[in-house]
Every structure is written in C-alpha cells, then in structure tokens.
Amino acid sequence: MNSSASYQGGYIDPNFPNPMGPNDATIIIYGYTPSLAVGVLGVVLFTIASIASIAHLYLLIRHRTWYFTPMLVGTLMEIVGYIFRILSSQQDPYSVPWFVVQYFFIVIAPVFFSAAIYTLVSAMINIYGKEYAPMPPNVVLGVFITCDVVATIVQIAGAALVGVAYSNQKNPTTYNHILLAGLAFQVFSFAVFLVVLAWTLAKARKSPTSIERGFIAALVVATLAVYLRTCFRLAETAEGLMQNLSTHEAFFGCLEFAPIVVAVFLFTYWHPGRWLKSGVLASG
C-alpha cells in the first residue's frame, strides 16, 4: 500500500474513548495503553539515580571525571520520557505529541549512557596504555559518538514521521523503514565497539597498570545491558508496526526499561570518580 493511501488498523482501547483532539491519532500508536505502574516506576527509579548522580558531583570535580556527566543527562531525560508515558496512560494515549516526546527522550537517553561508556573506555585505554587498544582513545570517542549521533537522528526522524502518518491516517510502513535503518546502523556500530572493548580488556592483562575487577565487571554488564536494549529496539522495528513485540508492554518493560535501569544503577555505585584513577582524559 502506498504511504499516501488511507491507512486503517491498530489498537484502540475500548475502555479509553478517543478524545479526538486536533493532535490525536485514530489509534493508540504505542500498540497498547501505557501502564501507569511502568511510568511511575520509571520516574521513581531514574529520579533516585539522578539524585545519586548529583551527589557524585563532588567526585566529578575532585577527580576530574567530568566526562561522566552524560550519565546524569541521560537519567534526567529518562525521567521526562516516563512522565509523558504517565500522561499518555492517564489522560490521552492517542496523543501524537506525547508519544513523540516520550519516544524522543527514552530513545535519546541511552545515547548519553553509551557516550559515558565510550569515555570510560577511552579513559581506561589511557590508564592501561595506548598500545593495549586497537585504536587511540580520541578515535574511540570520535568514531562511536559520531555513529550514535547519526543513528539517533535517523531514528527520531523515522519515529516522528511514523507518528505523523498515523495522525493523518496514512500507511507508516515506509517511515518505519527509516527508523529501522537508524537502529540497524546503531546495532552494528555498537557491535564494533564491543569488539574494541573486548580487544582492550584482553590485551590489558599484560599491562603493568590494573583497574579494579569489580569496576570492569560492572562496565561489561552495563554495556551489554545497553546493547540488549538496542537489539530489542531493532527486533521490534524489524518485526513491523503493530506486531507482537511492539504491542505488548511486557517486552518494553523487560527489554527497554529493565536493562537501562540495570546499567544506570551499576554506574551509580561503580562511579569512575571513586573506582577509576583521577586525571585521565581522552587524548590521542
């Protein structure tokens, strides 16, 4: 079906009549009515993490780990995203702007977590020694942050166009392909980063300088959690609009929400200001 053709289908909550406002789609774009419990839990948990991050500001200053501030930015963005899921849940799940806003913030936030991970690995390369990594620390930052920015811009554009298409009762499939392309590129680039991380950790066993094993374990688990979340988004989008993965909030809760919570709270305790040596900046 052509994207300009009239599009029918999708989820309508029989217990939540469509307000039919000027910004409302004819269906609930989420594929379900968002759960109040998930929204509240998201706001509460990420608020706790944000407070902990703010409490760690003195570590950022004392140990010059300013590069870890993206974690705080990301947690604050998660809070905004889940606030809009609460609004959708309780007031208007058909609202296109609210869907786009929550999608924007919840999708963008992990990019900041990834950026924080890239900076940590960059700092670790400086600690171990550049000879133990496949590329200089400044290249790690430049390449993978650029990849994430490009992938995220494509995703947001695709998601916004999908929302507009639903609002105008047009087939959003073409725009979903744009979203899919962004996610596929992000999964690929992150997989390359995992290779760089594995290479560095393997070679660093010969380095005369060591880093706390608990910190390394936390970094690896958090990194894999963020990657799991990205793979879920890719699988969800590849399956197609209004299919099984995208129409059951349990998948969102277990494969989007939970992995990010795990990553955030791991770094809340294993903060680099406490566990990583001070004065280490990316250079190259």
Rank of each mutant, 00 (worst) to 15 (best):
I125V: 15
F113G: 01
Y128G: 04
R233L: 08
V187L: 12
R64G: 05
L120W: 00
I12K: 01
N171W: 00
F68H: 06
E239I: 01
Y7F: 14
A218D: 11
L59V: 06
V261P: 01
C231Q: 05
A25N: 00
T174E: 12
R205V: 07
I216G: 05
V264P: 03
H56V: 08
A225L: 14
M1E: 10
P19Q: 06
V143C: 06
V164L: 10
E236S: 12
Y128D: 03
P259T: 04
V96W: 02
G158D: 14
L224C: 06
P19D: 05
Y103K: 05
R229W: 00
I216V: 14
L234G: 06
C254Q: 01
M20D: 12
S114G: 03
V196G: 07
A217M: 10
S122Q: 07
F84A: 04
G129L: 04
C147Y: 10
W98V: 02
G214P: 10
V139M: 00
I54E: 06
A25Q: 02
S53D: 13
Y103D: 05
V262L: 14
F215L: 05
Y32T: 12
F251Q: 04
V261L: 02
F46I: 01
G273H: 09
H56K: 06
G31V: 11
E212F: 06
A25Y: 05
P70I: 11
F232Q: 06
T65Q: 11
A115Y: 00
Y30K: 13
Y227E: 06
S35H: 07
A225P: 01
V140L: 09
Y227L: 05
Y128C: 03
M71I: 10
Y227V: 02
T209H: 10
N23T: 15
H177T: 13
T230A: 08
R62Y: 05
I145N: 01
T26H: 13
I153Q: 09
V162C: 15
P137L: 02
T65S: 10
V101F: 09
A160G: 05
N168Y: 15
W98D: 03
L76N: 13
W98H: 03
N2R: 05
Q91L: 14
V44H: 08
T174N: 12
D148H: 04
V164A: 13
N176W: 08
V162G: 07
P172V: 12
A198H: 11
M242I: 02
G10E: 03
N23G: 04
T75W: 06
K203A: 14
T209I: 14
A5V: 11
I127C: 01
R85P: 01
F104A: 08
V149Y: 10
F267N: 04
S4K: 13
R213D: 08
